[in-house]
């Protein structure tokens, strides 16, 4: 049914090579630090450190919602939402190749110990940083594959 490996075969190797040429600009805040590291881990998969050809600018939106209200109007469950707006820019021509968003959320049980809830919210952020980085790298791979096919 027309499926072929994303990073192998004719176009695939070029996509992986293209990923290695993406340079992620710094992102503010702790969530920015986590997302940037997660992105760098997922982009460097060919082992070759190539000169940067694309620049990835990312802005993050991190929020926490309460739900699962009990009868005494207290909440018992939270949901942390991390969303990214990212642009892939061709460094040479300064042309924007991709302007897209990626986001995900994680559920947190509000437990009696407030510090345990805070720690769970922090862990949710670290899991979300990896998930959002995965979604962004997939979107970039598809765009690089498209560019590869056009040539």
């Amino acid at each position: 049914c027309g499926l072929q490996p994303m990073y192998a075969g004719s176009g695939g190797a070029a996509v992986a090579q293209g990923l290695a040429e993406v340079e992620v600009s710094p992102i503010a805040g702790q969530d920015g630090w986590l997302v940037r590291n997660a992105l760098n881990d997922r982009l460097r998969i060919t082992g070759s450190n190539a000169a940067p050809r694309y620049r990835l600018d990312v802005m993050l939106d991190d929020s926490l919602e309460g739900l699962g209200v009990l009868n005494d109007d207290t909440i018992s469950r939270e949901r942390r939402i991390l969303r990214a707006r990212f642009q892939l820019v061709d460094i040479a021509s300064d042309e924007i190749l991709l302007d897209s968003t990626a986001g995900s959320d994680a559920g947190i049980d509000v437990v009696s110990s407030e510090y345990a809830t805070i720690a769970a919210e922090q862990t949710a952020l670290e899991n979300l940083a990896r998930d959002v980085a995965d979604r962004m790298v997939r979107r970039i791979s598809l765009r690089l594959r498209e560019a590869g096919q056009q040539q």
Partner: peptide
């Protein structure tokens, strides 16, 4: 900050 005052509006 997000964690400082989680939005508890349901």
């Amino acid at each position: 900050e997000t964690l400082a005052a989680p939005q508890r509006s349901v």
